[in-house]
Amino acid sequence: MAERSIQEVRAAQPSRDGDGVAIYRVAGMQHAAMDPVLMIDELRSEQREDFIGGFPPHPHRGMQTLTYMKHGGLIHEDNSGNRGEIRSGGAQWMSAGRGIIHSEMPTVDTRGLHGFQLWVNLPAADKMNEPDYRDIPAQEMVTLAAAAFDATVIAGNWTLDGESASGPLQTLAARAGVLDLQLQPGAAVTVEVAPGDSLLGYIYAGSMLHEQRELGPRQLLITSHGERWQLLAGAGGASLLLLRGEPLGEPVAQYGPFVMNTAAEIEQAIQDYQNGRFVPEARPLQ
């Protein structure tokens, strides 16, 4: 099997989004080695003023989101009539398709927030499909465990050290997958994937080792092509999200919450939103 290596390390940048929510972001809209992953946000704060404003109603078109909570709770509402709440260990998936307006707000009892939101690109042929939504509570997640690791399989199909499992979410675009992995101190774990897939690792705790270098939290590891990647944890162990997917290889045009293929399609998205053509038959958000 062809071995992968880390070809690039990208640091997440501090930012704010929504109503002043503090986040750390890695954007890869034009990055071929991240395709189909468009963006990774980590939301992590113990201070309510850093997240209590949440993400009030805002539009999307042409992409999917996956929100995964390690700690705290979020409530989703959208103008298709969906409403859902997730707590620690749960996830929410949304396919914006041709257009949706949604909000994501912390639950009133949330005292600390730690989670992730991923943007995954939709192929051109699916960008104008009807929007869709699903909650995945913690009890539906699939786990893999061995002496060297514990893993929560959220989306897609994964093989770790020869053990395979499929997550409850199989509707991420481009065969994308998401896995939450905890490595024991000094552990080595091998991940097997299709040789042409993008494969990324976002460290959120502990450290990983690569060519005599220690890589720590809020760093995204982007791998080369190959059929397997051996991950090496540092002396204190490591926690990371693994992300993989089949590259779409399509042009990306992005403006705020809209992700299309051309500038003309972005202009159309803006006009449609301004003229109330995002799911016009559905009720407005309050």
Rank of each mutant, 00 (worst) to 15 (best):
residue 2 A to H: 13
residue 5 S to W: 08
residue 7 Q to V: 12
residue 18 G to Y: 00
residue 18 G to C: 01
residue 20 G to F: 00
residue 25 R to Q: 03
residue 26 V to P: 02
residue 27 A to Q: 04
residue 32 A to V: 03
residue 36 P to R: 09
residue 38 L to A: 10
residue 41 D to I: 03
residue 45 S to C: 02
residue 51 F to E: 06
residue 56 P to A: 04
residue 57 P to L: 02
residue 59 P to G: 07
residue 69 M to C: 04
residue 74 L to N: 00
residue 75 I to R: 05
residue 88 S to D: 09
residue 90 G to F: 01
residue 90 G to R: 10
residue 97 G to P: 15
residue 98 R to S: 15
residue 104 E to H: 05
residue 107 T to C: 06
residue 108 V to G: 13
residue 113 L to E: 04
residue 114 H to E: 08
residue 117 Q to C: 07
residue 117 Q to G: 05
residue 118 L to K: 02
residue 122 L to K: 06
residue 129 N to T: 14
residue 137 P to Y: 11
residue 138 A to V: 11
residue 145 A to C: 12
residue 148 A to D: 14
residue 150 D to K: 05
residue 152 T to K: 08
residue 152 T to P: 04
residue 155 A to W: 02
residue 157 N to Y: 12
residue 161 D to T: 06
residue 162 G to L: 01
residue 165 A to Y: 14
residue 169 L to S: 07
residue 176 A to L: 04
residue 183 L to M: 06
residue 186 G to I: 02
residue 187 A to K: 02
residue 188 A to M: 08
residue 192 E to V: 01
residue 194 A to W: 12
residue 195 P to F: 03
residue 196 G to W: 15
residue 197 D to Y: 15
residue 197 D to V: 05
residue 203 I to Y: 08
residue 204 Y to K: 00
residue 207 S to P: 04
residue 209 L to M: 11
residue 209 L to N: 13
residue 212 Q to C: 01
residue 225 H to Y: 13
residue 227 E to V: 12
residue 230 Q to K: 14
residue 230 Q to W: 11
residue 234 G to Y: 07
residue 236 G to A: 11
residue 237 G to V: 03
residue 241 L to Q: 03
residue 242 L to I: 13
residue 242 L to Y: 06
residue 244 R to P: 09
residue 244 R to L: 10
residue 251 P to G: 12
residue 257 P to A: 08
residue 259 V to L: 04
residue 260 M to A: 11
residue 260 M to Q: 03
residue 266 I to P: 10
residue 271 Q to S: 14
residue 279 V to P: 04
residue 286 Q to K: 04
